[in-house]
Amino acid sequence: MSDPFLIGEAMTGGYGRGGPDILHDCTIAVDRGEVAVIVGPNGAGKSTAMKAVFGMLDLRRGQVRLDGQEITALSPQERVRHGMGFVPQTHNIFTSMTVEENLEMGAFIRNDDISGTMEQVFELFPILRDKRDQAAGELSGGQRQQVAVGRALMTRPKVLMLDEPTAGVSPIVMDELFDRIIEVARTGLPVLMVEQNARQALEIADKGYVLVQGRNAHTGSGKELLADPEVRRSFLGG
């Protein structure tokens, strides 16, 4: 079996050099054209696992590979240049800048013409076109998340990573955001995301990772996990 496009394999580590381990032998991967979600109870290390893949904590063991290339030692900034797009859970937009400026800053590492990519983002999130000259901090929660995802897309990443994109938005907005994320994935861009709303997330997932206490508890396709009685009982409320 060939290597998935992005894989964090057998990752063990925590924040800081002397800090306790949060992840234990944890593996997360996403392949081309797939949506992979990380779910699990509070404090299971979902966000930590994603941050580990993105290089935001020191791994004691394990490695991260992107398109077959080992990137374990790279800083998050270097990973962005290698094609990883990351949307943090909070503070993920420039609140004092306009929507358009947010997108421009997203494309800061590019030196070519960005208007085509910006047009694609506006097609994906039409509301942003109308609000392009408005300060991003004035937008609603769902619109801000669209700006955040749009900003990450501006680098034309090879893989998109979302840390709880639906945190703090209403259920209706959540459904809409999920629709958009599926749309992004359909363009062939692999999407790896951490989700609090396990059921909805697994419904759209090609692959799901259930983490418990920093370990892989269950892994499978979204449908398999939804059908798994143990997963249902422990995380999905029966």
């Binding site: 998050p76 943090p88 503070h91 937009i93 420039f94 609140t95 800048m97 421009e104 800061f108 590492i109």
Partner: peptide, 22 residues
Amino acid sequence: TRTGKSMRAYSDNEDLALLSGI
């Protein structure tokens, strides 16, 4: 200007500015 905007971005949200390659 691009440099000026990157200064505002850095002032607004340092971590995100770093993530954006500023």
